[in-house]
C-alpha cells in the first residue's frame, strides 16, 4: 500500500466528497424546481445510473493517473469515489424499484431474468456490495490486505458489466456507451500492460 503522511478525512478527501455530491445535489435542485423534463422518472433513474458509472470509471482512472504523474496521495481518493459510485448505483436501483416499477416485484423479477441489460446490471450491483462493505479500515484489517486486494479486483468485472448494461439499454445511438467502453479499455489495458512489464 502506498504510504502517505496524512491519514483520515483530510481536506482533499473532503473536496472529493463534495465533488461527488454535486450531481446528486444538482438532480435534487432540478427536481425541486420541476426541471426534470417531460419524463422526470426516466431522468432520475438515468442520471443516477450514468453518474454511478462515471464515478466507477473515474475510480479506475485514479491508479494510472497517480502512477503516471507520481502522485501516490491520489490513491486515497479511490475509496470515497468508489463509495459514492456505489451510493449512486444503489439510488439508481432504488429509483428503478420504487419509482419506475413501483415495487411491482413480479415485473422486476421478470426484468432481471429476461432482460440481459438488467441481468448484467444486477450482477454488477451484487458484486459491488462486498466491495462497499469492505471499504473501511476495520474491514480491511479483519480480512487481511491480501484478501482485500484480491476481492477488490472484482471491480475489473463490475465496471465492464456496467458499461455493457448501458450499451444494451441504448436504443440505437450507442455513441455514449462506446465512449465509456473505449475509456474503460484504455484503463484496463494500462493495467495489463503494467502487469506484463512487471512479469518481465
Amino acid at each position: 500500500m502506498v504510504k502517505s503522511n496524512k491519514k483520515g478525512f483530510t481536506l482533499d478527501i473532503a473536496f472529493i466528497c463534495l465533488l461527488c455530491l454535486l450531481p446528486l445535489l444538482w438532480l435534487i435542485w432540478r427536481g425541486y424546481n420541476g426541471d426534470l423534463g417531460v419524463n422526470p422518472i426516466e431522468t432520475i433513474v438515468r442520471q443516477l445510473g450514468v453518474w454511478g458509472l462515471r464515478l466507477l470509471i473515474v475510480g479506475l482512472a485514479i491508479t494510472p493517473v497517480a502512477r503516471i504523474f507520481k502522485q501516490p496521495r491520489l490513491i486515497r481518493w479511490r475509496r470515497p469515489i468508489g463509495l459514492f459510485a456505489f451510493a449512486y448505483i444503489l439510488l439508481h436501483l432504488t429509483s428503478y424499484i420504487a419509482v419506475d416499477q413501483y415495487f411491482d416485484w413480479a415485473a422486476i423479477w421478470k426484468d432481471i431474468v429476461k432482460r440481459p441489460y438488467i441481468t448484467f446490471g444486477m450482477i454488477g450491483f451484487v458484486l459491488l456490495i462486498p466491495l462497499a462493505l469492505t471499504s473501511f479500515n476495520a474491514a480491511i484489517k479483519a480480512i487481511g490486505g491480501r484478501v482485500w486486494r484480491n476481492l477488490h479486483k472484482l471491480i475489473y468485472v463490475i465496471v465492464p458489466l456496467g458499461v455493457l448494461h448501458y450499451f444494451l439499454l441504448a436504443k440505437a445511438d450507442k455513441t455514449m456507451p462506446l465512449i465509456y467502453g473505449a475509456i474503460l479499455m484504455v484503463l484496463l489495458g494500462w493495467r495489463l500492460f503494467e502487469a506484463a512489464k512487471r512479469r518481465r
Binding site: 417531460v38 419524463n39 422518472i41 426516466e42 429476461k114 432482460r115 440481459p116 439499454l169
Partner: peptide, 19 residues
C-alpha cells in the same frame, strides 16, 4: 410480445406517476 430488450406489458403515460 416484448421487445427483445425490454417488456412491452406496461407503459408510462407522460404526466403520470404509476405505470
Amino acid at each position: 410480445v416484448d421487445h427483445p430488450r425490454w417488456s412491452q406489458a406496461t407503459e408510462r403515460r407522460i404526466g403520470e406517476f404509476r405505470r
